[in-house]
Design a protein around this nucleic acid. Structure first.
Lengths: 216, 216
DNA sequence: TCCTTAAAGCGACAACAGTTGTGTTATGAT
DNA sequence: ATCATAACACAACTGTTGTCGCTTTAAGGA
């Protein structure tokens, strides 16, 4: 939601610095046009040539914009990806409701698997970039924080149905359910296992029902 | 164990190419000396300046060796780190035996947490490098494959004690137990939670005893 | 000891990343 | 319409990364 603000704060002065003259932002015409063209160029370049050919120069050239413009507004590739990810915030995304905890977690994991194995994957590219760029790392943190927060309803529903004890730590449960997928695909870099989403969901649900994520 | 071989295979021709003249490798004197000095330089540079200042030039300068030598033998920073990791293979490492599954997994997780939060962490550096260098990615895969294989005894013992059902998939259980730590520290990049190793171990052990990792 | 040649040294080079100073455009307020 | 200036364009520059061809050194076999 704060995508535009966050990017503009990178470009110019901090939006909430002086309390008087308000340096007069310019969200209008050209700036917006340039931004749209650059972000489009990032997406296209990513799709056509993958992450390792996603350089500032290539993006600028493709967008028909000068290099310095990109450097000044986005700083580096990580900044570009961060903006793309913020923009692509599916503000209406919600976790599926399948009727029980294990099903909900499995559906979630299938989405994660899909997002991570899509070629090219913006998420995977952003993860790679997050090891080089602070902006990308922050964007990724924001993205996951947002997602995990939205997923807490899954646990709420499970508590209401009596599947897991009250006081279950939603965040820990969700991490336990999804972490094996990230480990498998991102860190171990093994080919996707179609059964893994279900397996991970099942073991997490089992542990949760046994009270593994409930505090005393 | 195959550290020297793997590196040399990068430098020269494949060791098992021709079956006759055997191009005459030279593991002796100078080569070994240079290799030792370069790898030492990598370790020192990593300790003193961290991963982002671990460049080929800096390593070469510190080792008193020419840049091209490093480029030709190790290709890039990832190759250097891969060699360091292979060399540092604690060939005698074994998982602790605490008496029960949860304790074993917790001990394991504490080691992971320690290795990942140590500053500087060779493991963390290698993970970062694995997103840029194929050599680093391979070394990391080898490292983890080796570690997970060594850890399978933990599951064997648990099966023998009757803590988990027979036919429990050791690999999946171990990944489930350790993945949350990697997710937390490497991907989410949150400050280490001293309770997380125990928590993750507990939930994995619970799921395992409920048969979550046993195939029919 | 001599000889072959793997491996290291050396310098020059190209490609790229990133910065800075200055001029130009056009936005948004008057 | 006019004007101040935010935002982009342009060019020139620096430093880094990685490569290439050639020369020199020394390892290991005769």
């Amino acid at each position: 939601m704060t995508s535009v603000t966050s990017v503009i704060s990178v470009a110019g002065r901090n939006p909430d610095d002086g309390d008087r003259p308000v340096p007069a932002r310019r969200p209008g015409g050209r700036s917006a046009r340039v931004r749209a063209r650059v972000l489009d160029a990032v997406r296209v370049q990513l799709v056509e040539h993958g992450y390792d050919e996603l350089t500032v120069d290539a993006v600028a050239a493709r967008a028909g914009v000068h290099r310095t413009t990109v450097y000044r507004r986005w700083r580096d590739v990580g900044g570009l990806l961060a903006d793309v990810l913020d923009t692509a915030g599916d503000d209406d995304w919600r976790p599926e409701d399948t009727g029980d905890l294990e099903g909900d977690l499995a559906a979630l994991n299938r989405e994660v698997q899909e997002a991570l194995t899509a070629r090219p994957s913006v998420t995977a590219a952003l993860i790679a970039a997050s090891f080089r760029s602070a902006e990308a790392a922050d964007a990724l943190r924001r993205f996951w924080a947002d997602r995990y927060t939205r997923c807490e309803v899954v646990v709420d529903r499970a508590v209401r149905r009596g599947e897991v004890p009250e006081g279950t730590d939603a965040r820990r449960l969700l991490v336990a359910a999804t972490a094996p997928l990230y480990h498998h695909l991102v860190l171990l870099r093994m080919p996707p296992d179609p059964r893994l989403p279900g397996h991970a969901a099942r073991s997490a649900a089992l542990a949760a029902s046994a009270g593994a994520f409930a505090e005393p």
